[in-house]
Design a binder for these strands. Structure first.
Lengths: 183, 183, 183, 183
DNA sequence: TTTT
DNA sequence: TTTT
């Protein structure tokens, strides 16, 4: 991926819910993750402990999305690296809105999984080889995920997501969505 | 600042416009920066070069805001480090919206400034010592900024910005804004 | 801390051993952490899984050092943020050597501690207020560490460690060490 | 590239000299970059301004190495992202030494080049397609480098450098060096 | 909506 | 010397 400048986000936090996985007509997996980070401090006046939680809307595509759907759950602690992207969309009320998301290109599970011991594997977004997720890939992931991680080439096209910028729900891409998937 | 998890953004890009500086009743400086990063790639089908620019809404407070106002301009190339923060606000139309910003805690100018030699200074957000920005601070900055940089203690309170989450313009905080400024 | 340029390291890995804590004459705590990160891949030729572990020599000062000594152990998974620093030293054999370390300025425990649940607190290096670590600080940390985190002002002086660049063991600073501690 | 943990370095600094480029028997380019970052502060006692420069030994392979050789010069300001790696080597005196390097996987030029307009291109380490650097690659780079950037798949094998850990000069890999180059 |  |  070519770039002018740096657009990098690094998060470590917990998932507020199990990732939501969708598939495009093209069978491309898309995962939405809601990740919480929080800060605590003592109120200057009262000295009372306070906390502020920030919720980060994150999205993963293709293999990373499938891995997220398979291995992450509500409460999972994760490391996420990605880039910021703001999408424009139109609500039912016809009002234009903007949503800023973290497009994930690296994901690591930081808590032990049942039977997985204490560590977690790392996963990076990759160049899809073309529909190889169907079966063999899934099997491979099943045994490898908790212990290992994968590497893929980044997309030739920077936008690893649908390109349309206007629809009615930031979570549901347009129907012709998959025509724009870059592979 | 205490934290649970990591919430970190790193940007290198160019300003789309001179920073907008405002002051609260409390005389706290707030700077809004619009920073562009872009990615280029070749269209898989046509082979044509394409580019996508991402605009990042960033905000700096206090001294960093003043420095930004003094030394940055349209087109300035900067390094910015900060954290993601999403604010809720209500438009004139009464519709609730969310705006995600990068709250800057480290800022470096990356292009040479007239008279500034080859490097750019770095600036980190600091603990305000209490109203010392009025005069001496400004003077100090004037000579030092292009060559040197500063360091301040982070705020005891994580939110380095107005705490209200509801108003009519994401750029104009409520009137009682400064009552919530953490110092 | 002022800076020209960016010098940042981010690690997530496991400790190979309990941190080694030393104190200077000045009673300044210094902790040495050995953190492992590893990468795995499949051999291109044989297809066999391979792994390469990288050991990172890290050092924390003052409060961070004490926290590390108190809460980290062999095998602990941590997030570390810091800066690279290379020191010159002279071995018993009179040969000059260089050691590159990560000087930690942010530390988070990523695995649950006994009785501490699943999360870990974050700790950032701070401006020492002057010997406040003796007792109250310790007590405060004891109850707070697994759940909360701390924030301190960075040092006015960038080098948060002994300044001498020549001694016989990278782990044992010179005797006049503490004279150079920046507070 | 698979990974367990995170091993990430981010530098912004200036080159102390033009990159040194070498080629293995296999015609693989290797570039050594010496990058300076510095910090400035005021002496607590005397109030005098002080500065400490840190020199970072960085290494790039293949295409990134060639790009570095072509476009970077003494004084160039760059953004570098990579990972830490420590190599063991043996000096003429037979003494074992360790050298820690930043293995670059992303590189951006931050200063304008003659004829290059205002920005600098970004370059990421890639999967070698197999000897395509000879000619066409060079040509492609010549027109594109100052304005655009490239993207390549990471290596299947994490070590993007010679694997031998013992020789007499950290800058000159063993003769059978290229046998270990991972492609 | 998470985590401590 | 860790972790899976």
């Amino acid at each position: 991926m070519a770039s002018r400048g740096i657009n990098k986000v690094i998060l470590i936090g917990n998932l507020g819910a199990k990732p939501e996985i969708r598939y495009t007509q093209n069978n491309t997996a898309i995962a939405n993750l809601s990740i919480a980070t929080s800060e605590t401090w003592k109120d200057k006046q009262t000295g009372e402990p306070r906390e502020q939680t920030e919720w980060h809307r994150c999205v993963a595509y293709r293999r990373l999305a499938e891995i997220a759907g398979e291995y992450l759950d509500k409460g999972s602690k994760v490391y996420v690296e990605g880039r910021l992207q703001t999408r424009k969309w139109q609500g039912q009320d016809g009002v234009e809105r903007y949503t800023t998301e973290v497009v994930i290109n690296d994901l690591q599970m930081l808590d032990g999984r049942p039977g997985g011991g204490q560590g977690g594997g790392g996963f990076q977004s990759q160049q899809s080889g073309g529909g190889q997720y169907g079966q063999g890939g899934g099997q491979q992931r099943q045994q490898a995920a908790p212990q290992q991680s994968y590497n893929q080439a980044p997309q030739q096209r920077p936008a690893q997501q649908p390109q349309q910028q206007q629809n009615n729900d930031p979570f549901i891409p347009d129907q012709d969505f998959d025509d724009d998937i870059p592979f």
